[in-house]
């Protein structure tokens, strides 16, 4: 027989066919040639070929579903497997631009990226749930003090407004210690004891953290403009 055909001479159908066959070999634990699947992915990602992408999706959907099922955060996510499968492919399609493709020298590295996308979409969900818990805790306090506001409203706060609040608070801080206390307390949600351990070179002891926090909170409470901004998004 002659030398192997240049993969780029094959049609998408021809590549997809061979990719399917080779994947079957792999699942039968036989040696397989990964370059057809790599070429299918290359056409999908570099050429932005929608048909190639659909074939990639059909080819790898069952594999990705298995990956979702094995993620430790999946059982508590409250979502269906298929939801994360679709999100993972969407994420890969959006994130893996043609210029990034040069980072991937083989099929294994591309599939590893797809695994990372599975992890990312599940973590997106986990973060939303965490944010909701933080919001609920704040709302519980609001309810006790007869304040108004809902969890949904908290969640719906635009990131740009949150960033604006962060900028306004930063502008009212006097030094690096205050910045670290505010950042660690409210952005990282650390208790002063955890904060002290995290930034042990900055603070002598946990009491110092409490005193810095006391000063900053007193200043923020006296700041009508800031409180108005904060309440405006409650």
């Amino acid at each position: 027989m002659s030398q192997r055909t240049d993969l780029r001479l094959l049609t998408i159908a021809g590549i997809a066919h061979r990719c399917r066959q080779e994947t079957e070999h792999f699942f039968q634990r036989q040696s397989y040639d990964p370059w057809y699947c790599f070429e299918l992915l290359r056409r999908a990602i570099v050429d932005r070929n929608q048909r190639a992408w659909e074939l990639v999706y059909n080819q790898y959907r069952p594999l990705v579903a298995g990956w979702v099922k094995r993620h430790s955060a999946f059982p508590g996510s409250g979502e269906e497997i298929q939801y994360f499968v679709n999100r993972a492919f969407e994420k890969m399609w959006m994130a893996l631009t043609p210029d990034k493709f040069s980072h991937f020298s083989d099929l294994k590295s591309l599939l590893r990226y797809l695994q990372m996308c599975v992890h990312s979409v599940i973590l997106d969900q986990v973060r939303v749930a965490e944010q909701a818990v933080v919001g609920v805790e704040a709302e519980d306090l609001d309810a006790e003090s007869n304040a108004t506001g809902t969890v949904v409203e908290n969640q719906a706060l635009a990131r740009v407004h949150r960033q604006e609040l962060w900028d306004q608070i930063n502008a009212r801080l006097h030094d690096e210690k205050e910045r670290q206390v505010v950042y660690a307390s409210f952005v990282l949600a650390l208790k002063p004891r955890e904060l002290c351990a995290q930034f042990r070179e900055t603070f002598r002891d946990v009491q110092e953290v409490y005193r810095v926090k006391e000063n900053v909170l007193a200043r923020l409470r006296r700041d009508a403009e800031l409180l108005e901004f904060l309440d405006g998004h409650a």
Binding site: R127, E130, Q131, V134, G135, E137, A138, E139, D140, L141, D142, S145, A147, N154, L157, R159, R162, Q163, L165, W166, I169, S185, F186, V187, L188, A189, L217, L220, R221, L230, H233, A234
Partner: peptide, 13 residues
């Protein structure tokens, strides 16, 4: 309450 509000707005920003 103030701490809770700040954390709710800034958490992992």
């Amino acid at each position: 309450h103030l701490q809770g509000r700040l954390t709710a707005e800034l958490y992992r920003l």
